[in-house]
Computed example of a mutant assay.
Amino acid sequence: MMRSVITLCFCVVLSGCSSLFSAKIPDWWTHTPVDSEQWMYGVGEGANADIAQQQALTYIAGKLKTRVSSQLSVKTTETNTYYAQYAERNIRSSIQNTDLSHFQIQERVVDSSAHITRVLIRLDRQALAQAWRNQYQELSQKVTQARQREAAQSLFAWWMNARATLPVAQQADVLALQLGALLNRKSTSNLWTDLQQLIRQTPIQVGVDGDNSAISQQVTDLLNQQELRVVRCSSCDLKLSYHTKVDYQKIFDQQVATLEFYGELKDAHGLVSQQHWIVQGSSITNTSFAYKAASAKAAEYIQKHGLWKSFGLDQD
């Protein structure tokens, strides 16, 4: 009789444990609510509520990224090669940092035995969309201003500012793609493409004047990489001028050449910047080889620090 009672109690306890375990896996975890026009849903779990919340937001962001990728594929085929290259290298990496707000935890369950917290998050689509619209408008205004050249602004100053605004245009286009994914609409923002094409289609006459062939070649190559062509011009939009001074010393068995670089940038309004820096090269043979080594070091310096910084501009 006692054995039957113990068996019965054990079954009751086991049944109770089973019910308790089932309660810890709610329906919303196994069957996430379907997104609506107003709400997007995400579920997540973790060692605490913060980790679970972050996982739920990642769940929602994943749904947006899938839609963004679909929009990108269409956009890339509809636009030119420049946009295709840009989208591949920049936009796809930018959407990894999707910033979500206007959400709330709708449900939360704590499994104390497994030390797991599960949450259901509900994100307000319309509220987030309005916040993103406001951000897009601010970015779009900056791009519009960068496209316009002020009367007192030199062509080179405009070019530098427009080029520096390209990341802003990229950020706006990414935001527009995310907004389209959020509202299930096609994005029509091409701020980066339009600004890049405007920069390409605005010719700038650039002249280079210097006394070192290795340095001049490096400067020309970097200008070409930025799609600025070096031409012979009497009144250039931009002139990069420099001269070098070389001193020699014999240190032990080495001929050491110390090369000093004096460079300046001038545009149509006059002096823009100046810069002075020093490099050294050595050779066990003679001063001629030491000079070549120092010239190579100077070219490496410009490559490493950037063209504009090598001539005294803060941005590059």
Rank of each mutant, 00 (worst) to 15 (best):
V143M: 08
P33V: 01
S235Y: 14
L198K: 12
G207D: 00
A61L: 01
T188P: 00
S216Y: 13
Q153Y: 06
V143G: 05
R185T: 08
V206G: 05
A164Y: 10
H115K: 15
S235N: 10
Q170I: 07
W159S: 08
A172T: 13
T66E: 11
W28Q: 05
R125G: 02
Q148I: 13
A169T: 15
D314G: 05
L128D: 03
L139C: 07
L265A: 07
V208H: 01
Q104C: 08
C9E: 08
V34K: 00
N184I: 08
N48E: 13
T58L: 13
I91H: 03
T258S: 13
S187M: 08
L139W: 05
I6S: 08
T76C: 09
G306D: 13
V68D: 03
C17R: 14
T58F: 04
T287P: 03
A131V: 09
Q71N: 05
G270T: 05
T287A: 13
K245R: 11
G42E: 01
E150Q: 11
L259D: 04
V74C: 08
S70T: 11
E264H: 06
Q96V: 07
S189N: 06
G42R: 10
T79H: 14
L179V: 10
S113D: 10
A87E: 15
Y262F: 15
S235P: 00
A52M: 03
Q153L: 03
S213V: 02
Q315N: 12
A152M: 02
R185H: 01
R89E: 14
Y83T: 14
Q54R: 15
N184M: 11
R108I: 08
G62C: 03
V256E: 08
T98K: 01
I251G: 00
G281E: 11
D35I: 00
A61Y: 05
H115I: 06
Q71W: 04
I204P: 04
P203F: 02
G46Q: 10
G263D: 01
S216M: 09
